[in-house]
Computed example of a mutant assay.
Amino acid sequence: MTTRPDGRRWTFEITDPHAPDMASITGSTATFTGVANAARALAAEQLAVKPTTLAATVTVDVPDGVRELMAASDAAHAEAAAATARGVELRRRAAQILTDAGYTKTAAAEALGVSAQRIGQLTN
């Protein structure tokens, strides 16, 4: 079922994925959190069964472009995480090169602009 805001109410449309040629059932409720229960009650009435025997999966219908924006956002976050991991690895290599060359943690920290404690974390 899909739902979308309609003024101060939430309109929903129930379709049967196993019978796509069947007419859909539409209804509305005052709150988003009430959509699943209202849809079950309406479908149960149409099918002459108890509402508790029906499952409801709510899909929020969003304006064009919103899902694409979220996918692009997810991709950007993944790229940022990869760049951060790469940055940490490069910093680790720089710290290791300095300490292997005999720099103290304090001197390496000064050279890299981090704390001596961070040099210890990077090189252990």
Rank of each mutant, 00 (worst) to 15 (best):
F32S: 01
R4T: 12
T99A: 05
D21R: 09
H18S: 10
M22P: 00
S73H: 08
V35L: 01
G34P: 00
T26C: 04
A56L: 15
E13C: 05
T59W: 07
S24P: 08
A71M: 00
A55R: 15
P17Q: 14
L112M: 08
L112W: 01
S28Y: 03
A41Q: 14
K105A: 10
I14A: 11
P20T: 08
T52V: 13
A109W: 04
M1N: 09
I25N: 04
T104S: 15
H77T: 10
G27D: 09
A55N: 15
S73F: 02
L98V: 02
E89F: 02
T53Q: 13
K50F: 14
A95I: 03
A95T: 08
T11M: 06
L90E: 09
L47E: 06
R9I: 11
E79D: 15
V88C: 00
Q121D: 06
M1A: 10
N124I: 03
N124S: 09
V114W: 00
D61S: 15
D74A: 13
V49W: 03
A41C: 13
A82Q: 10
A75K: 06
I25R: 04
L47C: 10
A101G: 04
T2M: 07
T3C: 11
R67G: 05
A116N: 08
W10A: 06
A41I: 14
G120N: 03
R93N: 12
E13G: 06
A94T: 05
F32T: 01
T2L: 12
V62K: 14
T57L: 15
D21L: 09
V49N: 03
Q96S: 12
N124Q: 12
A72K: 13
A56D: 15
N37T: 04
T33A: 01
R8P: 02
E68C: 03
M70W: 05
A107D: 15
P63K: 03
A78E: 12
T59M: 08
A43E: 11
D100A: 11
Q117W: 06
V88Q: 11
Q96G: 13
T106Y: 10
G7S: 05
D21H: 03
L47P: 02
L54Q: 08
S28V: 02
L69A: 14
I25E: 00
L98H: 01
R67K: 07
R93S: 11
R4I: 01
V35M: 00
D6T: 05
T15S: 15
A116E: 14
K105Q: 11
L42F: 00
A19M: 07
A41P: 00
V58F: 14
A44C: 09
A108I: 08
P17A: 10
P63Q: 10
E79Q: 14
V66G: 02
